[in-house]
């Protein structure tokens, strides 16, 4: 028996190495399945919770155009959550179970959403910076080894491309507007820059699972690689906007053809992960409330569907 198991593992890894997708009914190691469920559901939860900080500004959007854009963007996030939950469900875990894990605090979501959105410029910054960081994470996942996850990500990335642009457009409008608007933009960048850098996760040295995930091609770049890429991509955009990146150590390094930048405050990062961010309690509280208050609606629809099915069965008989 032992040898058969080893063979399956080897065959599995050989398929991964040959970039052949793994599909739901294929054999896979338990650890691969578990890691995927954790990663995909965490990603889905992030979309779901991520609706809240921006949803916070839909009713206060400053123009009808912005209101429509913001509502459609936040709605897209619901859609992305849904695609991802569906992908995770193909691995045999129900959405109900995943939501229960989110609500109990067992499952995590991206810590960035535990920061408050305090001004309209935050809608620009979240779109431009946070979605920009998310896209860097997500684009490689379109080629991730698990088929349903990769296909969900293709759809997500396609839709996500307008999100970053609308954020940048908000920033550009603010930066080209009145001084008070430019200040608003700078103040938002000051608050969001460092938390956004934290989105890529702990430094490689402190990320023990990275090697296995890269080996399984669930992850395709390390946290630090992506962080560097992000800084190199964003600094020129901030310069274009005339905004100052709040990092005195930021400097172009000609040798590595990239920016050197200051150290991330990992104490803050772990604090927020542990639940001590400004909004952890509010965000999770809002999700639990929506789910609990929706219970009777879901039950009513199920009950009605049963009644209707019975009625049709009687009519057919």
């Amino acid at each position: 028996m032992e040898t058969v198991e080893i063979n399956l593992e080897e065959q599995f890894q050989a398929r991964i190495d040959a970039d052949i997708s793994i599909e739901p009914k294929d054999w896979m190691p338990d650890a691969y399945r578990k890691t995927l469920v954790r990663q995909i559901s965490q990603h889905a939860h992030s979309e779901l919770v991520g609706m809240l900080p921006e949803g916070n500004w839909i009713t206060r959007a400053p123009s009808l155009k912005r209101k429509s854009i913001l509502l459609s963007k936040v709605q897209d996030e619901a859609g992305h959550g849904l695609y991802l939950y569906s992908a995770a469900e193909t691995l045999g875990t129900s959405r109900d179970q995943m939501l229960a894990d989110l609500h109990s605090g067992k499952a995590k979501y991206s810590s960035i959403f535990n920061y408050p959105t305090l001004s309209w410029a935050d809608m620009g910054t979240v779109g431009w910076l946070v979605d920009g960081a998310a896209i860097l994470n997500q684009v490689p996942l379109c080629r991730t080894s698990y088929g349903p996850y990769a296909r969900a990500m293709v759809r997500v990335c396609k839709e996500e491309s307008f999100h970053q642009r609308q954020g940048f457009e908000i920033m550009q409008t603010l930066c080209e507007g009145a001084p008070v608007q430019k200040e608003m933009a700078q103040e938002a960048l000051n608050r969001w820059w460092w938390p956004t850098l934290m989105m890529f996760g702990p430094a490689d040295a402190d990320s023990p699972n990275t090697a296995q995930s890269m080996n399984w091609r669930i992850k395709r770049f390390t946290n630090d690689e992506l962080r560097q890429k992000f800084v190199d991509m964003m600094v020129p955009q901030a310069e274009f906007l005339g905004l100052t990146v709040p990092d005195p150590e930021l400097q172009w390094n000609e040798t590595k053809k990239g920016y050197d930048f200051g150290g991330v405050n990992w104490e803050e990062f772990w604090n927020v992960v542990k639940g001590n961010g400004m909004c952890n309690k509010d965000r999770l509280g809002a999700r639990v409330k929506a789910h609990e208050e929706g219970a009777w609606v879901r039950e009513a629809a199920s009950a009605h569907a049963k009644k209707r099915a019975r009625k049709m069965a009687t009519q057919a008989a």
Partner: peptide
């Protein structure tokens, strides 16, 4: 892809919305 719905009518409408 997939989605959840209580019945077929709702499933079609949800598919349209999603």
């Amino acid at each position: 892809g997939s989605l959840h719905a209580a019945d077929a009518t709702m499933a079609i409408q949800n598919a349209r919305d999603v």
